[in-house]
């Protein structure tokens, strides 16, 4: 964030719909992302949440951090549950059993719940076009159960089930691009965001909630525990991921791409990788290969967003 926009944080919604007292690790940027998202959505929201870090830390049985109606469901079906909530409420409003008003229906899940296990339910909900928002908090592994690889783990990252060593580089496959999969469903709104850019994140969530029909927001959430970085650097690494174009921030409105944040100066990938314990085994040659892939992907997004202008 530049020095001139710092005071705009005072304009942000003051109420906390995701309260203190949750059990997230120190410096959890995912909990921060949830906090920002709930600020953007407000009280008239129903949340269905898959199993995962955010469910575990916010709802140990007699307690809850949520100040909105919230339901926990299994790993695979948060999109299906919120579809049911939306259809049910719509029917009750039509029959006059409850007063008609705008309610945000939001499903949330981690990257495991979205890209691996809940993929089918999510695809179905996007295809049916329910008036809902799906928010994926992507911390790039199953952090809740102890850093196991997911299909969202980037190439080369060392996790407990893809450990780096003499015979292995760590994660051998490329990160699954969930935002592009959502775009392929031809839904009205898809966006990528990061909690290190809170205004951008809140704006995108608001826009997603206002969009009639299904919307998908992919939020990169830095996990100091799983990425093996110091807790105070959680915000910094989110910023580095965006500035090094590993995770470009863009939105796709009715198929039209728009790059919402263009780094003033693209920083080299090593800046982003070198401080993270999960990437420390990578050699310069391997980083070079990853850099080429990142450049190629970013070029594509850039080209698509310029085509539309």
């Amino acid at each position: 964030m530049d020095k001139f926009s710092v005071f705009s944080s005072r304009l942000v919604e003051k109420s906390e719909n995701f309260t203190s007292g949750h059990r997230a690790c120190q410096g959890c940027a995912e909990a921060l992302a949830v906090r920002h998202v709930m600020k953007a959505l407000g009280r008239d929201t129903i949340v269905a949440m898959s199993t995962g870090c955010m469910e575990i830390i916010s709802s140990p049985l007699p307690l809850t951090s949520w100040r909105v109606p919230w339901i926990h469901n299994a790993f695979e079906n948060s999109a299906a549950v919120i579809s049911g909530c939306e259809s049910g409420m719509k029917a009750m409003m039509r029959k006059g059993k409850i007063p008609a008003k705008k309610i945000n229906f939001v499903a949330m899940g981690g990257d495991g719940a979205t890209a691996d296990i809940g993929m089918g339910a999510l695809s179905g909900a996007l295809e049916r076009g329910h008036n809902m928002v799906y928010i994926c908090y992507d911390n790039e592994a199953y952090m809740n159960t102890g850093i196991q690889r997911s299909s969202s783990t980037p190439y080369g990252a060392s996790t407990t089930t893809s450990p780096a060593g003499k015979a292995s580089i760590g994660q051998r496959t490329q990160k699954k691009n969930m935002a592009q999969i959502a775009v392929a469903h031809n839904i009205p709104y898809v966006a990528t965001a990061c909690s290190s850019f809170p205004f951008d994140l809140m704006e995108k969530v608001k826009r997603a909630a206002e969009t009639p029909g299904a919307a998908y927001v992919h939020v990169l959430s830095v996990c100091p525990t799983g990425w093996r970085i110091p807790t105070q650097d959680a915000i910094k690494y989110g910023r580095l991921a965006v500035d090094s174009c590993v995770f470009p921030l863009y939105e796709v409105i009715e198929g039209k791409y728009r790059l919402t944040y263009k780094p003033y100066k693209k920083i080299p990938l090593t800046e982003y990788l070198k401080g993270q314990g999960r990437f420390r085994h990578l050699t310069d040659k391997e980083i070079q290969l990853i850099q080429q892939k990142v450049d190629k992907d970013y070029e594509r997004i850039l080209r698509l967003s310029e085509e539309e202008e």
Partner: peptide
């Protein structure tokens, strides 16, 4: 059904 009826009561847990 393990419904929590009080909103935001995690504030009693002092992290």
């Amino acid at each position: 059904g393990s419904v929590v009826t009080e909103v935001g009561n995690a504030r009693v847990y002092e992290t």
